[in-house]
Simulated assay, not measured.
Amino acid sequence: MRVSTAERVANYAILMIFAALALTPVVTILVTALSPETPADAQTGGPVHWENLARAWDQGRFGEYLRNSVAVAALVVSLATVLSTMAGYAFGAFTFAGSQVLFYVFLLGIMVPAEAIVVPLFFDLRYLGLTDTIWAIALPQVAQSIAFGTFWMRAFFRGANRSLIEAARLDGAGHHRVLWQVLVPVARPAMTTMVLLMFMWTWNEFLIPLVMSPTGQLRTAPLGLALFQGQYTQGTTLLAAGAILVALPVVVLYLFLQRHFISGMLAGAVRE
């Protein structure tokens, strides 16, 4: 089917409109963050005030909060990726008694919102002495991420080339070797997409870190930004600079993995 020039122009025009709508808030925050904070700054500094980022970093203690977020995200993503890959392989490559029911139990982690379980979960973790620790923040998010990751990897393994598995089994490979040496290299685009989504969700999580650290000993970057907003409700410049500092790791990781992310999304169509 041949697309006419008018249709092509219309498609590009629609895409440009939506791109402008999506980029306008980002550009607004960036311009605000690099604008002069006071009239005195406008007279003494140049047109771009990079020092606003340094001020927000120091005054908002974003170095500490970003380290906490990195630690939580690394723990959640690493554990959830390994466990989701193994569970997805079990549900996608095999059929065993109760597999369908057990898979639906896994899906409850996607369907049940965190707001519905966060209060009883807090009391359980407090009873175990885990509140105000990294485990109290990470473990609930590991469970949520495993639910999604199992669903995602099951879809991939169900559509994987069966000849690869059969050839490996004929060579004497066990399940461990088939999974990690044969299927995982092929599943790299899908796993990259899964890792990026898990990292983004964990990085932006607000409720669980807020509840699981009642004393505020372990504040993550979104919590630090909320606290910074309370301190600088009038200082929109520093607040915008803090928002950039919090969002920058996710943006950098997405730009670095963009090609793998897109290929994983295109290959991630669920086939039941």
Rank of each mutant, 00 (worst) to 15 (best):
R259G: 06
P222R: 00
L139M: 08
L257D: 08
A54M: 03
G92Q: 04
N68Y: 10
A6D: 11
I134Y: 13
S84D: 00
L218C: 02
A13W: 04
A13Y: 04
Q100C: 04
V3R: 13
F151A: 03
G149M: 02
P209K: 06
D41T: 12
R8Q: 13
L107G: 00
V48H: 08
A10M: 14
M265D: 08
A90L: 14
E115F: 06
F106Y: 14
V101Y: 09
A241E: 01
V118Y: 07
R55E: 09
L210R: 06
S213L: 10
H176C: 14
G159L: 11
A147D: 01
A19M: 13
I146E: 05
L15K: 13
G60R: 08
F206N: 01
A160Y: 01
L164Q: 11
W180L: 13
V72N: 10
G129C: 03
F96G: 08
V178L: 14
A93K: 15
I165E: 12
G88A: 08
V211G: 12
Q258K: 15
V27G: 06
N161A: 15
T150S: 02
L255P: 05
A267Q: 10
F106S: 12
I17L: 15
L210C: 00
R271A: 14
A190S: 13
V101D: 12
W152A: 12
F122K: 02
G242C: 08
R259A: 13
Q231Y: 06
L23T: 07
R55I: 03
L253K: 13
T24Y: 12
A267C: 05
T28M: 12
I117P: 00
P39R: 07
V70Q: 09
R154C: 11
P185F: 10
F261G: 10
L121Q: 15
T233F: 14
A136L: 09
F157H: 01
F62P: 05
T236S: 15
V77E: 01
L75G: 02
T220N: 01
T44I: 14
G46V: 08
T237S: 13
W152F: 09
P39W: 12
Q231W: 06
A143L: 03
Y232A: 15
R8L: 09
F18K: 12
A80R: 00
G230M: 10
F261L: 15
T193H: 03
